[in-house]
Design a binder for these strands. Structure first.
Lengths: 253, 253
DNA sequence: TTGTGTGAACTTGTTCACAGCA
DNA sequence: TGCTGTGAACAAGTTCACACAA
């Protein structure tokens, strides 16, 4: 166990590991699907398969939240959905603003999963005066000049930056100054923010480069097993999606 | 990794930790910016600040690549750009297909950073016959029927899935069967793939949920220091971006 | 019997702090 | 002198394996 002291489950579990937090949405999605199919209970094994992780990890993750399962049976789907939602703070409504309504911003505005789970697009903001008033995904775009007012009037604490890289830091500074404390950044730039503000970044080109690295490695390995022809031994049921490090790598000191 | 078996091919000493690989693109971007400003050398301290990490980590990361710095001086920018590019496999050209040309697919197709660094959009594919032939970002959309042919003709090994969740697994299976071995998945679904295929996922709603978790926690902590008014102590140089940060999400099969 | 919950072992990643080279 | 390169300490995350509740 992490902290020496045995913590009380039910209410406030201090210290849920970050890696666990990052997986809760995954479990939640799988559970929601089960819930829609009116499945009453799941075992860690089944749920883990659905979420693409292994079952020991899932059980460990859940143990940080409390003891919500029943030995010999499994987890109650509805109950878990509720507990995880609460833990993630999704039982309340989070107004979100999207800044930068280009291709990507529009895609985000149209993204359905947005609204579905506690998030509400409070406003779309763009620097181009020609965009002002034009509706995107049914929401009229507002000009950057309104940014501070929008944030304050709507009590927005989460902002999404989908501007070009050059504008991102400036937009970020204004968001933060206006009271935003969590930022999801799609611009390919490192943002600097004061303490207490969370930034998460999503970066297409970084993801591709990581894939290229592994791809290159595979190509260099034309010696191993039945490589060479991927089309051949397609066995589409590998199931276990979750763990992250492929390429364990030898690492000789 | 999925099956207990640690697949450890005969590949040489190349044991670059996954966490390091995930940061190399960051360093590369910072270095490219320096290169464009004709800066000849950087210290680990400066480069680390530009990339949003701390300098010890950066030095450790570089040490896995080799000894490319000069003590007392720093790193040669051009040389490092080359070494990292090579390590990431960006000295070759990677043809990529994007499947699902909705809002998001179009945004991706238009994304400049795509082409800039070794990646080339070889084709855009969509299931809607009405889309066929329509140019997006200057590239005509092709129908899903052509998928296998496109992959094979262009030697594509990296595929981007930007379809609705319901179609993602099927598209994935076809991509893999046709020879794709790396997939970047934007659909909110767990994909199952055979061993040897890498999947990385980008999921807006997961990112937002993680932010909501931290946001909720902040709200519950209204006791701490300078609470309530973030606008106050703005100190825009906190530098280190990834506190809990990246949480990549490599999902090998 | 079944499947959760969890100490304990293990693996991976980060930070420290300093030896040693330019 | 200044900054890299790296062993060693530390921290976080994952997996194992089994006691134990239902």
């Amino acid at each position: 166990m992490a902290t020496g002291r045995t913590h009380r489950p039910a209410t406030r579990s201090r210290g849920i590991p970050e890696a666990t937090v990052a997986r809760l949405p995954l479990y939640l999605r799988a559970l929601t699907a089960l819930s829609e199919r009116s499945v009453p209970t799941v075992s860690s094994e089944e749920l883990a398969a659905a979420a693409g992780v292994n079952s020991a990890k899932l059980r460990k993750d859940f143990s940080y939240l409390g003891s919500y399962g029943t030995r010999g049976v499994g987890y109650d789907v509805e109950y878990l959905v509720y507990q995880i939602s609460r833990e993630l703070g999704l039982t309340q409504d989070w107004p979100v603003v999207i800044v930068g309504i280009g291709n990507l911003g529009a895609a985000l505005a149209n993204y359905g999963g947005f609204a579905s789970r506690g998030f509400r697009v409070a406003a779309l903001i763009d620097a181009d005066p020609a965009m002002a008033g034009k509706p995107v995904a049914g929401i009229p775009v507002q000009h950057t000049d309104e940014l501070e007012k929008i944030i304050q009037d709507n009590g927005v604490s989460i902002g999404v930056i989908a501007t070009p890289a050059g504008a991102a830091q400036q937009v970020c500074d204004r968001l933060v100054a206006a009271g935003v404390t969590s930022i999801l950044n799609f611009a390919p730039t490192v943002l600097s923010v004061p303490d207490g503000v969370d930034v998460r970044k999503v970066d297409l080109s970084i993801e591709l480069q990581i894939l290229a690295f592994h791809e290159q490695r595979k190509a260099g390995e034309e010696a191993g097993a039945a490589a060479a022809h991927p089309a051949a031994a397609t066995r589409p049921d590998a199931a276990d999606q979750g763990p992250d490090g492929d390429v364990p790598a030898v690492m000789p000191a």
